[in-house]
Every structure is written in C-alpha cells, then in structure tokens.
C-alpha cells in the first residue's frame, strides 16, 4: 500500500475513533446531543470524555511510535517501551507518590512518575555515552524494569492499608478512566516533545538495517541517535505512564500490524505507528467502557487480553516472514 494513502487512512481512523470515544460509554451521547443547548450529557462529553480521548490519542501515539523506534533501533522485533525500563520506572514513581506521599493530586503523582522516568532515562543515557552496544542498552533497560518492578512489589507488600494497595494495583493496571484536563495538560506537552525527538531518528534507523558499522560509515552519529531514542522514549512514554499507568502491547503490536502494509523500512513505519497506536488505544478505551457491570475493565488489562491471542495469531500467520 502506498504510504500516503495509509497515513491518510489511519488519520481518518483516529478521527473516527476520537468521535466514537466521545459518544461511547455507560451513557451513549449521540452526535446530535452535542449541539442541544442545556443537554446535561454535554458535560459528560466535555468534562469526562474529551480529555480522556485526547489523552488516548497522545498515549497511543507515544506507545506506538516509541515501539516502532525501539524495534528499529535495536533491530529487534520484540522490543517495546517496556523493554527499556521507562514504563516500570514511571510506574514506580507514581506508586511512591501514592504510598509514601499519600498523594491524590494529579500534579504530585505526575511529577513523581516523571522524575522516576527521568532517572531511568539518565541511567540509560549515561550508559548510551559509555557503550555503543545495543545489547548493553537493552540489558540495562531490562534490569531497570526488573528493579522497578521489584521495588514496586516491595512497596505494595508494606502498604499500610488495603485501600493504598488497591489504589496502587488499580493504577499499575493502566487506565484512562476519570482523567481530566489537568492530566491532559500535564502530559500532552511532554508526549509531543518526546514524539518530535523520536521522529528525528528515521534516517539512522534505516541505515541501521545494515548494522552499526555500516551506519557509522554512512556518516551517521549513533551516539546522538541513542540519546534521541532515550530522551524521546523517556519523555513520551514517561509522561504517558505518569497519567495512565502501564498500558502494554501497543508498542509491540502496532509496528507488526503495519509492516505488511508499509514494508519493513523503519523510517516508513514511524508516522503510521504513531497514528496506529492512537487509533488502537482510542478504540480499546471506548470498548472497555461498554463492558457490563458498574466498573470498567482496565485498559492495560484489556490490551493484554485482546493483544495476546491476536499476537499469537499474527505470529502463526507470519511465521514464514523473515522479520520474525
């Protein structure tokens, strides 16, 4: 498929899911109601669903794009933002805020989560300067993720009351429920800057198809790219996790879904992956609201539930393709 056609199609899909996301929920708000003066449902749309949909676009784009960049950078189709430890570190920061600072305000939780994501980012950036190896980079990320996971588990185990534990677990599972414009205005600028940095890596990612030595002899500075990857992922994914919790699978699946459509050239995947991620998160977040019962399925849980069988099916279908 021609790339411009795909990008236009995905943009249309994002727009469609955006409006669906404003309409769908426990209360269905049809398009017509938006223009009715004094309709109480208008508040549902503007106060609850609009920030949630905007965040959905931002978070989805950040996860999809960073997944595509990391897979290209590490030349590994299994890479996703969770692999470099940014997600778990941001989650740890939020847990610390909830548990030790008894924080409930979005600003405090966001600041702590971002601080932790930045800490993880600094560790990776320091490593990026010292070593030129992608393997060391991925190992350090994995170790960071394990450490953050372990500390989070430890904090849960010493939580003073069941309410705190429930709050933390709820948060780790990832959700866009009840997010307001406060969270949106906090996170979206970081996500935008992070995504802009990640979009600058395309040329180097393409050249890395030939290996690191060949990429260097094509005049590219891999150290600079590594920093762009670290900063871009840290800012965009850090900010995403800081407001939604951990939403897995998006970064892993979206590039795989799109490769058969745009080809495997890493730079060609970047913009489509951002749009695809946004569409996927918007769609999933609309669906979780429609589940029966008083509460919603958590977005992170839904993603894993839908994502796993889907991913297996894709692996089986593509087992003959060389990129697996």
């Amino acid at each position: 498929m021609k790339r411009p056609v795909l990008i236009a199609g995905l943009s249309a899909l994002v727009l469609l899911f955006f409006f669906l996301s404003l309409m769908a929920g426990k209360v269905w708000v049809p398009l017509g109601a938006w223009w009715l003066q004094g309709d109480p449902r208008w508040l549902i749309v503007t106060e609850l669903r609009l920030p949630r949909a905007l965040l959905g676009i931002g978070v989805g784009a950040a996860l999809g794009l960073s997944g595509a960049v990391l897979q290209g950078y590490l030349r590994n189709p299994l890479a996703d933002p969770a692999v470099v430890g940014i997600s778990s570190s941001a989650a740890l920061g939020a847990v610390v805020a909830i548990l030790l600072l008894s924080a409930t305000s979005p600003l405090v939780i966001f600041t702590c989560a971002m601080a932790a994501a930045c800490g993880a980012m600094l560790v990776l950036a320091a490593l990026a300067w010292r070593t030129r190896s992608a393997v060391a980079f991925i190992l350090a990320g994995t170790v960071l993720a394990s450490l953050a996971g372990a500390v989070t588990a430890f904090l849960i185990s010493i939580a003073p009351n069941p309410w705190a534990t429930a709050e933390i677990i709820d948060w780790i599972m990832g959700s866009l429920t009840d997010r307001s414009f406060d969270e949106a205005t906090l996170a979206l600028p970081f996500i935008a800057v992070g995504c802009a940095l990640l979009l600058c890596t395309g040329r180097t990612l393409d050249a890395l198809t030939l290996g690191e030595d060949a990429a260097r002899t094509l005049g590219l500075r891999l150290e600079r790219t590594q920093l762009l990857v670290v900063l871009g992922t840290g800012l965009s994914v850090g900010a995403s996790v800081a407001v939604t919790g951990v939403v897995g699978f998006v970064g892993l699946i979206v590039p795989h879904l799109l490769r058969p459509l745009v080809g495997a050239r890493p730079s060609a995947l970047l913009v489509p992956s951002a749009l695809g991620g946004a569409a996927l998160v918007l769609a999933a977040d609309s669906l979780v609201r429609l589940a029966p019962g008083a509460s919603e399925i958590r977005l992170g849980v839904a993603m894993a539930l839908i994502g796993t069988p889907f991913f297996f099916a894709m692996l089986l279908r593509m087992r003959r393709s060389a990129w697996i």
Binding site: R75, D206, T209, G219, G263, R265
Partner: peptide, 15 residues
Amino acid sequence: HWNINAGDLVMLGRT
C-alpha cells in the same frame, strides 16, 4: 536486519 527491498537498500548508500 529488516526485509526491505533491494532498491531501498541501495538508496541507503545515498545517506
């Protein structure tokens, strides 16, 4: 590392 087509691969030389 990725299954890009040969034409795109040669174009990388223009980087």
